[in-house]
């Protein structure tokens, strides 16, 4: 699983960089969006491989019973910490995304263009 996840991370990251270095603000926004996915996937890969062949889906392993103690080895569950990190990252990512898109709307209204080069040229003239 980790190999597949790593490949996914590599591909999404590469595409997001490709998009972000473009000249069009919409593509850049989508690149930022993809970057969030890539980072989250990279973090979840750290929580070690899930229990094989038997993903416990919604009744999943991170939900524990009281019986969780030294007798029950840690290896029976995945690491919960990355999940907590990603959970907040997703929500923050949403807020940042919305803010970015709002800025995009305002930019296109004020400057009349979404081309990065033209925007930079205007900023230089303004400064």
């Amino acid at each position: 699983m980790t190999i597949i996840l790593s490949i996914c991370v590599a591909v999404t990251f590469a595409v997001s960089i490709y998009l972000m270095t473009g000249r069009e603000l919409k593509s850049i926004a989508m690149g930022v969006f993809l970057l969030g996915h890539a980072a989250n996937l990279s973090i979840i890969a750290m929580s070690r491989t899930p229990v094989r062949h038997e993903p416990q889906l919604l009744k999943g392993a991170p939900i524990l019973t009281e019986a969780f103690d030294a007798a029950r080895p840690m290896s029976s569950i995945v690491d919960p910490l990355p999940q907590a990190l990603i959970l907040t990252a997703i929500v923050i990512g949403f807020a940042v995304m919305a803010f970015l898109l709002s800025l995009l709307v305002l930019t296109s209204r004020k400057a009349g263009t979404l081309n990065v080069e033209q925007l930079a040229a205007e900023a230089m003239q303004g400064a």
Binding site: V91, F94, A95, A98, L101, S102, V105
Partner: peptide, 16 residues
């Protein structure tokens, strides 16, 4: 907070 943020942002952009 999450409800306020989610609803608020969508509402704002829709109004635009």
């Amino acid at each position: 907070v999450v409800v306020g943020v989610g609803v608020g942002m969508i509402t704002q952009l829709s109004e635009e």
